[in-house]
Design a protein around this nucleic acid. Sequence first.
DNA 1: CTATTTGCAAATAATTTGCAGCTGG
DNA 2: CCAGCTGCAAATTATTTGCAAATAG
Lengths: 147, 147
Amino acid sequence: MSHLTDIKESLTTAGLKATQQRLVILDSVHQMGNHPNVEQIYAAISDSNPSISKATVYKTLETFVSAGLLSKVSTHEGQMRYDPRMDNHGHINCANTKEIIDYYDEELNEMIVSFFRKKKVSNLKIKNITLQINGDKIDPLKEIQIK
Amino acid sequence: MSHLTDIKESLTTAGLKATQQRLVILDSVHQMGNHPNVEQIYAAISDSNPSISKATVYKTLETFVSAGLLSKVSTHEGQMRYDPRMDNHGHINCANTKEIIDYYDEELNEMIVSFFRKKKVSNLKIKNITLQINGDKIDPLKEIQIK
DNA sequence: CTATTTGCAAATAATTTGCAGCTGG
DNA sequence: CCAGCTGCAAATTATTTGCAAATAG
């Protein structure tokens, strides 16, 4: 079973019609992985799908967010980016390279989740809690390591 | 010593000319407190300062962020908001009311900071680490309590 | 079939820019 | 004085909308 079949299935499971445009757009966000913005997604698909309009990309991405298939990440630069990971993970925001890098640590996550479980939170329905690590990459060409 | 004198001093300490516009804008962000966006800041000052242009508000706010006098907060709605608090605090993001509420807990902060102190972080200069608590206010008219 | 979805072009919103004139130190 | 700041209007960028045609189920 190809990954496109999986993508198709996730669309129908979410109650969305599996149109060609949606398949292409959702697949590309998964393929890209770098928290792309609308422009980047549009550029990535345009070559092989010149008829998909940018308005469709905008609408479709919002549809996916509402349907719980993607999440929306905003940077300190103010543009919206899209993230295929729906689990409770954090982001490393590099101001200089504009990269957004996923960060997840089991122990840290457990620490934060249990902290809020112990608290009495009233009048707020928490959807998720995420950590934003803001900084600058020292060598833009190398990877960041946290271990 | 009035708070305007303090505002003036923080400008000069930051190496910025204490112009009338800057005094008014920086003061208003401190007075407002609700993580206002550009439009709200502009509206708040326009009555008493009709000659201050919106472009100046934009430029001035960016100047303050660069100078470390304000921080920039982005919501899941993609617009930039400004925050006079420069310490390491988190934000509760209410999707339904669009409010951004400061959250700080000494114990939680210490937990997170010490977690990253123990980690080997390479190729990243961390500026700050913030927590985003995303959710919906249950009763929009009442306060959120976490204790 | 028919309710949704898409593409287009136009509208709106958000932000930036260039530049001449003003002003704080 | 004069480097840096401001105001204006125009430019750019980001996003949304209305509507007729296309299409998945």
